[in-house]
């Protein structure tokens, strides 16, 4: 019961943020030079002023701003995100068709990066070997500096063009009718490079986060208590420091999720991954602002959802968070 109440409370808190996303999106839409009628007229080649006026009243562009806003909110509430003229399809369906591919890519990459990055961060923060600490630190600095999409292109050169080991584009082999294990294997082979590359680009952040968190937690009194009761160093680190250090790392994953998504967008275009990033590229190249705004809206809501999830994990990790209500 308390858990349900807490969940509802969190959900309620997310509503104003979601509303602000809607408002901002509306204003961005209005800030676009030209309106829908111009776009259609452009597509059609030429249009008479009468036809334009008719279109405008059809789209409600001749209404006062507040009325337009209400109409917009009504549409958004039913997930009507408008029409993409580039694809000649509804924006919502375009996006939801590709959401799963992005989720798969990001989920796997995040999992890898969190596990490996946290482990390296712990090692960096606790090792007595100065060279090892510096090496991991250097690795994190370099990881920050490598543009993910460029790294992607370079490993395509190496593994696809030179060595011919891995496929460089798509989620599966086009035209292949494999299914079952064979299909799974096909997808896995296609996943190796995009996931590895994206995970690498996230890695630096997690190394740094975990390194700092472990360093901070190590200074806390309860670690000394653990030592005073006879815990070995390894036990102090893994039983007492690491669980406490994971708390801020989880929270920051939620907060930074919007930024993490950016890495995925550029990398997807490198590997022709059939996800949101490719959609974004298509929208940019054809200046399809409807599609792009739809993407912005859906991904923002997505980040809100991820935030809710990480908060739930946070509450589960840290008993001091009294299930939402206080904070």
């Amino acid at each position: 019961m308390r858990a349900l109440k807490a969940a509802l409370w969190r959900l309620a808190q997310a509503v104003p943020v979601a509303l602000m996303v809607v408002v901002l999106n509306f204003f961005l839409l209005k800030a676009v030079p030209g309106d829908m009628a111009d776009v259609i007229a452009g597509e059609a080649g030429a249009a008479t002023p009468e036809f334009m006026a008719q279109l405008r009243s059809q789209f409600g562009d001749d209404q006062p701003l507040p009325a337009q806003f209400i109409a917009y909110v009504k549409k958004v509430a039913t997930f009507d995100l408008g029409w993409s003229f580039r694809y000649n399809a509804s924006v919502a369906s375009l996006i939801f068709d590709r959401l799963a591919a992005t989720l798969l890519l990001m989920g796997l990459a995040l999992l890898l990066a969190v596990l490996l990055g946290s482990a390296l961060g712990v090692v960096a923060a606790t090792t007595r070997q100065g060279w090892l600490r510096r090496l991991i630190g250097l690795f994190a600095t370099l990881g920050f500096a490598l543009p993910a999409f460029w790294l992607g292109l370079m490993i395509v050169v190496l593994f696809t063009l030179k060595l011919g080991w891995l496929p460089s584009s798509g989620l599966d082999t086009m035209g292949s009718d494999a299914h079952g294990w064979a299909y799974l294997r096909d997808v896995t082979v296609h996943l190796v490079m995009p996931v590895g590359c994206l995970a690498f680009s996230y890695l630096a952040m997690y190394i740094r986060l975990m390194h700092e968190a472990v360093r901070d937690v190590s200074q806390l009194d309860f670690v000394r208590t653990a030592r005073a009761k006879g815990s070995s160093r390894r036990r102090q680190v893994w039983r007492h420091v690491v669980p406490n250090a994971l708390v801020p790392v989880v929270t920051l994953t939620g907060v930074q999720f919007g930024a993490l998504l950016s890495g995925s967008v550029t990398l997807e275009t490198v590997f022709a991954w059939p996800g949101l990033g490719q959609l974004a590229l298509a929208a940019v190249s054809s200046r399809d602002i409807n599609l792009l705004l739809g993407l912005l809206f859906v991904t923002s809501l997505f980040v809100v959802v991820v935030n809710l999830l990480t908060e739930a994990v946070h509450g589960w990790l840290d008993p001091r968070i009294e299930h939402g209500a206080r904070r």
């Binding site: 806390l220 309860f222 000394r224 005073a228 007492h240 708390v247 840290d318």
Partner: peptide, 15 residues
């Protein structure tokens, strides 16, 4: 055995 001054910070909050 050792007894510390500030018991709140001397105890692991997650256990």
């Amino acid at each position: 055995g050792m007894v510390f001054q500030d018991a709140l910070s001397a105890l692991n909050p997650l256990m």
